[in-house]
């Protein structure tokens, strides 16, 4: 983690416009702050650490030995877990990666377009459409899934990735549309005006002015789409019937069946493996998160 710290400091201090406070001696304040934050981080991380430790324990010790002290190392959990299901676990990682990548592209393109219209353009039915958009995320998926399955099975899309990807290409994820609307509305209007006076039309303003400035929102969308799609269980369970098509969350659950014994060691090992890509995605993504307007220097 030291590498991380060193890399992060210049990025964030460069962008920090605020002068330090002077009342309390700086070193003391810093110690208090770091102690507090470290303690909090430890609490936040305890379950994750426990999971990593458990992935290295023999199966029958996981629930018998408490705490996070490791007294014997069972690395075989990783190889066992990797090969436990119909295909090597890498197969499911690849499937998930395909779905995630397509969903990210879909969300970035379609949601930003819709958001630009809602945030910057004035058109007939705007309020109604906006309310409709918000309304579509208010129904729980469990009553939508059956009619939707019927629809997709009529289209012959069941057991393909299409039911997972196409909706994202068509901006059905209102969460991100709304998120981007809020970000765009937070951008100064003068920027569009200036571009317009220079003769730019909407496509150009959108591509050249708005998109670069909403980099934090796009990064947020990317990170969240990655994580949520990576973890989404229900729709992947329903639409992917052939084990060849299974994604990580569906495969992970195949380790656990409440009616029989579970290979906990393998399950935790593969949970750790499947956590790595999302964590990496976050580490990379967060660097763009903090490159907002404040750091790009636009005034």
């Amino acid at each position: 983690m030291t590498d991380l710290q060193e890399r992060a400091v210049p990025v964030s201090t460069a962008g920090d416009p605020r002068p330090p406070r002077v009342r309390v001696p700086a070193p003391l304040r810093s110690i208090v702050k770091h102690t507090g934050l470290s303690l909090l981080a430890l609490i936040m991380l305890y379950p994750v650490i426990w999971m990593v430790v458990s992935s290295l324990r023999p199966n029958n010790e996981i629930f018998r030995s408490p705490g996070i002290v490791l007294d014997s190392l069972q690395v075989a959990n990783y190889s066992d877990g990797w090969n436990a299901l119909a295909a090597p676990f890498g197969h499911y990682l690849l499937n998930s990666a395909i779905v995630v990548l397509a969903c990210i592209i879909g969300n970035l393109v379609s949601c930003s377009m819709a958001a630009y219209a809602f945030a910057r353009l004035d058109f007939t039915g705007k309020k109604l459409f906006f309310a409709t958009m918000l309304g579509t995320i208010m129904l729980p998926i469990h009553v939508i899934i059956v009619p939707q399955y019927i629809l997709f099975s009529q289209l012959g899309w069941v057991n393909t990735f299409l039911p997972l990807i196409v909706p994202k290409l068509l901006a059905t994820d209102a969460f991100f549309v709304f998120l981007m609307v809020q970000f765009i509305r937070g951008l100064p209007r003068e920027l569009d005006e200036a571009a317009r006076i220079d003769g730019a039309g909407h496509p150009r303003i959108f591509l050249r002015v708005i998109l670069p400035l909403m980099l934090p929102a796009l990064a947020t969308t990317t990170i969240f789409t990655f994580i949520w799609t990576w973890n989404d269980f229900f729709s992947q369970l329903i639409y992917l019937t052939d084990p060849e098509m299974y994604t990580v969350p569906v495969a992970l659950r195949s380790f656990v069946d409440s009616t029989v014994a579970t290979s906990w060691g393998s399950m935790f090992a593969m949970s750790v493996v499947s956590l790595l890509p999302v964590f990496l995605a976050f580490l990379i993504g967060q660097r763009y998160l903090i490159k907002g307007i404040a750091t790009t220097g636009i005034k």
Partner: peptide
């Protein structure tokens, strides 16, 4: 958000739990 040593570490540590999502774990 402020210039804090180890910022990226804390941010990641605080975010890590959210990554677990609905995992069976």
């Amino acid at each position: 958000d402020r210039g804090l040593r180890g910022l990226a570490f804390y941010r990641s540590a605080f975010y890590l739990p959210s990554l677990l999502g609905s995992s069976v774990a």
